[in-house]
Design a protein around this nucleic acid. Sequence first.
RNA 1: GCCCGGGUGGCGGAAUAGGUAGACGCAAGGGACUUAAAAUCCCUCGGUGUAAUACACCGUGCCGGUUCGAUUCCGGCCCCGGGCACCA
Length: 863
Amino acid sequence: MEERYDPQAIETKWQQRWEASHLFNVDEDPGREKYYLLEMFPYPSGKIHMGHVRNYTIGDVVARYKRMRGFNVLHPMGWDAFGMPAENAAIANKTHPAQWTYANIDAMRQQLKRLGFSYDWDREIATCRPEYYRWEQWLFLQMLAKDMAYRKESYVNWCETCQTVLANEQVEAGLCWRCGQPVHQKKLWQWFFRISDYADDLLMYCDQLPGWPDKVLTMQKNWIGKSLGAEIRFPVEGSEAVITVFTTRHDTVFGATFMCLAPEHPLVAELSRDTPQASAVQAFVERIAMQDRSDRGLEKYEKEGVFLGAYCINPMNQRRMPIYTANFALMEYGTGAVMSVPAHDQRDFDFARKYGLEIIVVIDREDDPLDAAALTEAYTQDGIMVNSGDFNGQPNRQAMEAIADDLESHGMGRKTINFRLRDWGISRQRYWGAPIPVVYCPDCGVVPVPENELPIVLPEDVDLLEGGRSPLPSLEAFRRTTCPKCGREDSRRETDTMDTFVESSWYFERYCSPRCSTGMFDKDAVDYWMPVDQYIGGVEHAVLHLLYSRYYTRVLKDFGLTRFKEPFTRLLTQGMVCKETVSCPEHGFLFPDDVLEENGQRTCRLCGQAVMVGRVEKMSKSKKNVIDPNLLLNQYGADTTRLFCLFAAPPERDLEWSEQGVEGGYRFLNRVWRLVWHWHDKLDGVAPFDGDEATLSPPVRELFKKVHQATHKVTRDIEERFHFNTAISAVMELVNLASGEALQTNAAAERGVIRLALERIALLLSPIVPHFAEEIWEALGHAPSILQVPWPAYREDALVHDEWVIVIQVNGKLRSRLTVEAGTDKAKIEALALTDERARKFIGDKTVRKVIVVPGKLVNIVA
RNA sequence: GCCCGGGUGGCGGAAUAGGUAGACGCAAGGGACUUAAAAUCCCUCGGUGUAAUACACCGUGCCGGUUCGAUUCCGGCCCCGGGCACCA
């Protein structure tokens, strides 16, 4: 041990030793209990950011802790390596996405290693390697054979900037989740996974994931969006066509006075054909199609529509209902057709008023009947059925069942369940992804690639095109192929690639046997390791990756490949890493280096104007409030960086960056270092004390108790709630006590307790600041490595206090304190409290009406 | 609009079964050491009142309730963050 704490030197030293010892490499061991700890793998963008550091630090603490608890811990790391940034960077830098990606992986691996994470690097995977994606192609073929993957032409979300289709989950408020540009609807042939077949199951199991945050489960439930309702069939007048609607309010069916079809609805063109309205309808449909989906969601967005010139018949009362196409009817929800009940739905009401359509009340208030002509808004509450034939007089909720039965008996409808969740569109018109293994033959149609031809390797000999369009469709060597079925030579290969979320839907299984060459994974390995016991990552994947993975896991199970439905037993979503933003009126957001600080005034370096301190926001390049982890590693080392991330906030909350906070963490480590330095050569031959505490002098005895209290607290904080901030503060308290003057000078005769305390500090800190802990452990005379030492136990008897400090309250207010021997009975405490001088003062001449005694805690005298 | 979180000192945050509000850290102020600075160590540190440190009152977004006792439970409201949203 050196006198001065030198993080760079000790971190390099221990990282080399760990690597040489292969301590983090694991194998299936049926004799030991496994623990699979996984953090969401990164996209290899080139550099790790503070969000990664926080995520992986949290995971590493848990992995190391569980390891010390004796678990066989699987803690892997890999790369979510397909995706668009590689293509964009490749175009900009005149390189190849593969080259860019692999270089980034190398750089980021080095950074992660510098942070001392306990990964089994032998299991590292990159999803862009054919050895990985060939199995994804293989599963696609199995799904295709079972009709779980299918191709259809439909309106899909198209991002012009990204030149590709997006799944519904990848559209946020009408904008592309990646680039933030508006998304349009485009009609295309695309491949889909039937995730909607699993909607009910995915929903049901939301209630069987107690280890998941409610927030995420609620988001998934809302996304799946189950609605109980009915399907009702409305025959079109003078036509064979029937319009089927989905409604949750079939109790209002007698009040349906018109019909609205989504502009994309197939009947819109058909029914308006040859009517005087035909051209107006066509113009409307085209105009709506051109609009951004983002605009369509705006509140001020006006409801409008066009009459098709056709009518349908209300099956309950034979009413003739005009059919409109309306912008608020969405093809992707329900059946794309809405039965409009203006009296009881605000949107229908507005539309009816605008176009002068009839409003009929069918649910009435008992006490104060409604007047359709005088309504100023729709009546959406419950009431009594009116104008509803045989159902008049019934409470509407009660009539629902009967109406559904009635519809069903006439073949005009049935009760049904509708989900908001749509099938997962997985085709991407991009280059840097896993090719979809099918061939299109002019004779045979869609032909799956035979399994023995897998993988369909993504050709690397391509020139990327400006603007992001995939080079694959124009790459004849790839596109042109022979039909696997009939051998026709002018067949063409699918040139779309798979959504990168497909790769991330099974990487956790691949980690179990990352080099398996006979299948997606080795079944025994997966049976042993899966499911993931603890998953950690950002909440931004609540309905993307986390939903897709739950779905894909079910697919694997249904193919008999695995035995479980849920991939992640427990989930921790960590908060964002934030920092204040600073901006200048002229130059916008400023980098910290461009802000000058003089006597409390902060000015812009570029123009000298006073700057505005903005909100504390998530670190992002555009807001110029990013801290590069490399700077921290260089200045303070990995342990301080880790310590800060853990100490500044509990993991699920946002973490605000603070330079002083990092400084504080560094100072703490230095304090511990000096403490150990003071003692390290004075404890030779001294064993850690584990005897009868009654033999110890008071200050040493206090330290002995503190050791066990701290162990108890740190264990519970890590084990039960991942609150590392309070765990660290408990160790700080122990360090503060051990550094006290009385102990530095007087404890010479009781060095066993000092040894106990110092060793305990090392052990409790070892998951958090592992290099530091190794170094002080060694300085205390131990052979490496602290990783081989089990997590310390606490002694229950040492947690018991000798004395109780009893709080005395008078009428609920703290008035005095009482020190009694531990175990003093209630009656005695009460008697002592009542004679307490200060308590008496506040009781005065009032009569004591009641005395509440909480043993060991407090007495409340009610007077 | 609906559904989740969250509001505690100058700041990050503690209070894990309704029982001492403010642990731990940061910042600030004072002191020690030093020729000096840095580092380190010690002390003070929610607010108000009075002659300070003793004492009293107030204090966990606001209003009310339950309770001997509420940051914690219940009802209503305000603000901040996040998710969903013309969902039929």
